[in-house]
Amino acid sequence: MNMKTLAALVPLPGAQADYQACLLAFPVLERAKTTPQEPRYHGEGDVWTHTMMVCDEMVKLADYASASEEQRFILFFAALLHDVSKADTTVIDPYTGHIGQPGHSKRGAVDARVLLWRAGVPFALREAICRLIKVHQVPFFAVSSATLDATRLVHKLSWELDIRLLAALAEADMRGRICADQASVLDNVELFRELAREEQCYGQPRAYVDAHTRLEYARHAKGHPDYPLYAPQGSKVVLMSGLPASGKNTWVAREYPTLPVVSFDDAKATLKLRHGENDGAAAHYTVERAKELLRAKAPFVWNATNINPELRDKALDLLYRYDAEVNIIYLEASFKELRRRNGARDTTLNQASLERMLHRWDVPVPAEAHEVQYNVD
């Protein structure tokens, strides 16, 4: 499977996809044929039936007809893979028989990332697909929720993806099923579109007066996009992110030769720990060193994989507590190149461990820091 093969699968507006070819390209989707869904929300039956219905509805949409070739690629594969992880997340209540797939959107984004990365899909297209999958159900409830700040949510999402494409995926997802509340949910999707238009972020990121104000509004709902918040001066921190062997050490040595470096790997070396051995001690050592530099308001590089969103959030929370200005540098290499590099270097991380890390692989999004840079080999 390669990019040329995948591009040939994208149907023209109004045409039906070649689903047998889709299954050959992504054999994992065969499991969708035997994955049940809750009848209240999916009267059509199994996940594969639903997936084909969603793809059929997608190619009928005006948004698909007016989309560019790249946007159609994004929309079609987001539709095809939006429920790719339902087979692995299915839970059936033993008492009621109710079927759920908790976390399938978040897990699906990771699984789709790995599939598309191995297929050589360009970074920008791949991440656009994965970001849509991760939040593909948000337009169903964002505007009607009593607990969500829908305005703040569309602002944040507009910095991560094209809301026009998200709304199109949500509409196709809802039209491609049989359920009693279809009409009301489609109304919610349309209200989501209208809110994004009103907030000037339908098809473009919401403009902010500066990066600090954007970050505070996204993280804490402080302030307003058009009025600057006072930015206290702390350390200027470069937070590295990327899979092992993606080139982080080389990048740091070349781009920041004079800055102090806080490194989980260096901590393990100092403490003479092998990969996976007493990671807690290494993490504590790393955090304490970071705190020393943050208290001194000194610039530094935090060099770690930072691909696990929970761990990355912990690092970012610490940095922002000390008023740091954060620039995330994300590095990536191709699947083949990453395996070659990891096999050639002196490391205690074996290939099997590297493969397991892919199941936690989350790429930073622009809303996470003052600046996020993507450097893809």
Rank of each mutant, 00 (worst) to 15 (best):
249 N>D: 10
192 F>N: 07
205 P>K: 05
178 I>N: 10
164 R>I: 02
199 E>L: 10
248 K>E: 01
236 K>H: 15
241 S>V: 01
165 L>G: 01
205 P>Y: 05
224 H>F: 09
202 Y>T: 02
218 A>G: 00
192 F>D: 10
247 G>V: 08
199 E>K: 11
179 C>T: 14
249 N>W: 00
191 L>H: 09
173 D>H: 07
237 V>P: 09
231 A>T: 11
161 L>N: 02
209 V>L: 10
172 A>I: 07
196 A>F: 07
222 K>D: 03
210 D>S: 01
209 V>K: 11
243 L>V: 05
157 L>Q: 15
166 L>H: 03
212 H>F: 13
197 R>N: 03
170 A>T: 08
167 A>Y: 00
194 E>T: 12
170 A>E: 08
218 A>T: 04
208 Y>I: 11
190 E>Y: 08
171 E>A: 09
229 L>M: 08
221 A>V: 00
227 Y>E: 15
237 V>R: 05
229 L>S: 06
251 W>I: 00
178 I>Y: 08
156 K>F: 00
160 E>K: 06
238 V>C: 01
190 E>M: 13
251 W>C: 07
168 A>P: 04
180 A>T: 14
253 A>P: 01
191 L>C: 11
171 E>I: 11
169 L>S: 03
192 F>Y: 15
250 T>E: 05
208 Y>W: 11
188 N>E: 15
181 D>R: 13
246 S>V: 02
178 I>M: 09
183 A>T: 13
235 S>D: 05
206 R>A: 12
178 I>E: 13
253 A>D: 11
195 L>Q: 10
225 P>T: 03
174 M>Q: 15
186 L>Y: 14
247 G>W: 12
170 A>F: 03
251 W>G: 01
164 R>T: 12
159 W>C: 02
249 N>V: 12
218 A>W: 04
165 L>S: 05
167 A>P: 02
156 K>D: 09
168 A>K: 08
213 T>A: 03
220 H>D: 03
198 E>H: 10
235 S>W: 05
221 A>E: 04
193 R>C: 14
215 L>N: 00
206 R>D: 04
240 M>C: 10
193 R>I: 14
222 K>Y: 02
220 H>S: 12
156 K>E: 09
165 L>H: 07
217 Y>T: 12
184 S>Q: 14
162 D>I: 05
170 A>I: 02
235 S>G: 14
247 G>K: 13
226 D>V: 00
159 W>Q: 14
203 G>Q: 14
220 H>G: 01
197 R>G: 06
200 Q>S: 11
219 R>H: 04
164 R>W: 03
205 P>R: 08
228 P>W: 03
159 W>A: 07
231 A>R: 14
181 D>P: 03
240 M>R: 03
156 K>Q: 08
219 R>K: 07
157 L>R: 06
182 Q>E: 14
204 Q>I: 06
204 Q>F: 09
241 S>R: 01
178 I>F: 10
223 G>A: 08
189 V>M: 09
183 A>D: 15
226 D>F: 00
240 M>H: 02
198 E>P: 00
200 Q>T: 09
224 H>K: 09
231 A>K: 12
214 R>G: 08
192 F>E: 09
227 Y>G: 01
